[in-house]
């Protein structure tokens, strides 16, 4: 116990519960694409609603953030008037960016030691996001209809020749096994001449 923190059994390392990074393979989220219901039909609505930049006016770790604010931020606000940007100078604190989205989620990001260009790339990345956690898509398409063909029943896609076939029919009623039986395998091998006498061999 001494010198070690006692962690509860259900403790998850932040590296593995961060929904924003693609993460370890064992904890990756998978699902379908999700977005606002109107997105992609009519007008485009930017899903990023608020950006808060916290930085220090003195520290060297905030140098890039300060450069970004001096050179790029006004242009960013002009091109994206739908995003509210807040600046919070905090003495001797590490620079941080918090992005808040319309669906209620937010993303906290450390900017320590990042250059102005680097920060610009990240801000643009978050401007284009929907705010949903990054997922591995199980399918490329998503539909709200439960099933296009309707609920499955045993007669779905039945061949139409059944309509005029008298039943019971020997051909249709035949049992089709999933695997070939051992007897059937032996018979086939014999027919192909591959069957060998295991005890004495075919040479005898």
């Amino acid at each position: 116990m001494r010198g070690k923190y006692k962690l509860p059994n259900h403790y998850i390392h932040p590296k593995y519960c961060d929904l924003w990074s693609f993460g370890n393979e064992s904890v990756q989220l998978n699902g379908h694409i999700e977005n606002a219901p109107y997105q992609g039909f009519g007008r485009y609505v930017c899903q990023l609603q608020r950006v808060t930049l916290k930085f220090c006016k003195w520290g060297i770790g905030s140098k890039g953030t300060r450069d970004y604010i001096e050179t790029e931020l006004v242009d960013y606000c002009r091109t994206n008037p739908g995003v509210v940007v807040y600046l919070k100078p905090r003495r001797h604190k590490a620079p941080v960016m918090v992005c808040e989205y319309l669906n209620g989620s937010y993303h906290w990001m450390a900017l320590h030691g990042m250059s102005s260009e680097h920060i610009k790339l990240w801000v643009d990345f978050h401007t284009k996001r929907s705010g949903e956690p990054i997922r591995k898509f199980v399918k490329d398409v998503r539909t709200a209809w439960p099933s296009i063909q309707g609920a499955w029943n045993p007669f779905l896609n039945t061949p139409s020749e059944i309509n005029v076939t008298p039943l019971p029919n020997e051909e249709r009623g035949k049992h089709i096994p999933l695997k070939i039986s051992a007897t059937e395998q032996l018979l086939r091998m014999q027919a192909e001449g591959k069957l060998q006498n295991i005890l004495f061999g075919n040479d005898e």
Partner: peptide, 13 residues
């Protein structure tokens, strides 16, 4: 209404 509200009907039964 066409741009924001009505797309809610898309793909609904």
């Amino acid at each position: 209404i066409i741009d924001i509200i009505l797309p809610y009907l898309h793909d609904k039964d």
